[in-house]
């Protein structure tokens, strides 16, 4: 038996909206420590992982580890039936073929329950080691969103370089070129509005903007985002979900022939 109650149900809706376009059919691994997912997009160049900790839920029960095969598009449709202040409860039996979602209004005077059919999904799981990064940048998630959106109107790919000058995003296309450089800041009113750059070695990598733009769909989940760049390795873009967990995106770099 699995049962999880989330007072801030809108977080679940935002999480599914942040990942549903990259991965459609995914396995959620449920254990007594929480809910985990790892899934690659169809082309296998991008990976999405999330963790929702059991202690981030108002109530969490998982008697034995379960894998729930979920069509995220269908789950998103169901979550559209929930109100933005609803409390969401998820339930599944150990051998069941449905995930029950219950939406309770704030005043608990309206209750919706929906059964989502589960599926059997074969998925490839990758072992991602803890890496030493060449450069780690933390910035407001709205800033990241704006950079990748603005550069998408210039080109399809972006060069991201970290040097002691800062972190530079450059795009080139038919209409011209654009560079956006972020420098470290410390003057913002709130700590999360600052840009922090920790560089161990200069690094330059090229990525498809289409994916980086897609990662920005997680902006409503967190006020900050961390971008980890490592020489010759995928970029990691992390959004921490306060008191609940994280969603992380990985994207393979483009390589010169």
């Amino acid at each position: 038996m699995f049962e999880a109650r989330l007072i801030q149900g809108s977080l679940l809706k935002k999480l599914v909206d942040a990942i549903k376009e990259l991965c459609t059919e995914v396995n959620w691994d449920i254990s007594n420590s929480g809910i985990n997912m790892q899934s690659m997009d169809g082309s296998h160049v991008c990976l999405v992982a999330f963790n929702l900790r059991a202690d981030g839920f108002d109530h969490f029960r998982c008697d034995r580890p379960l894998t729930l095969g979920i069509n995220l598009g269908n789950l998103a449709k169901i979550l559209k039936c929930s109100g933005s202040n609803d409390i969401i409860t998820m339930k599944a039996d150990d051998n069941g073929d449905t995930l029950t979602l219950m939406f309770e209004s704030e005043k608990q005077d309206r209750i919706t329950d929906v059964d989502l059919k589960l599926m059997s999904i074969e998925s490839e799981h990758l072992g991602i080691p803890d890496q030493d990064y060449s450069a780690e940048t933390s910035m407001p998630s709205s800033e990241y969103q704006r950079i990748v959106r603005d550069l998408s109107s210039i080109g399809d790919t972006v060069n991201i370089s970290a040097t002691k000058e800062g972190i530079k995003f450059s795009a080139m296309g038919d209409i011209g070129t654009a560079n956006i450089t972020l420098r470290q800041t410390s003057s913002a009113d709130k700590e999360e509005e600052n840009v922090k750059i920790e560089m161990k070695e200069p690094v330059l990598l090229t990525f498809a903007l289409r994916y980086l733009n897609n990662f920005a769909k997680a902006t409503p989940l967190s006020s900050t985002v961390q971008v980890f760049l490592t020489k010759d390795l995928p970029v990691q873009v992390n959004y921490n979900i306060q008191d609940l967990g994280y969603v992380k995106y990985y994207l393979a770099p483009k390589i010169e022939e």
């Binding site: 296998h44 072992g127 990985y250 393979a252 483009k254």
Partner: peptide, 13 residues
């Protein structure tokens, strides 16, 4: 520009 799949960077757990 070509792009390797993630399996080229990360192995099986």
């Amino acid at each position: 520009m070509p792009q390797k799949t993630l399996s080229a960077f990360y192995g099986k757990p």
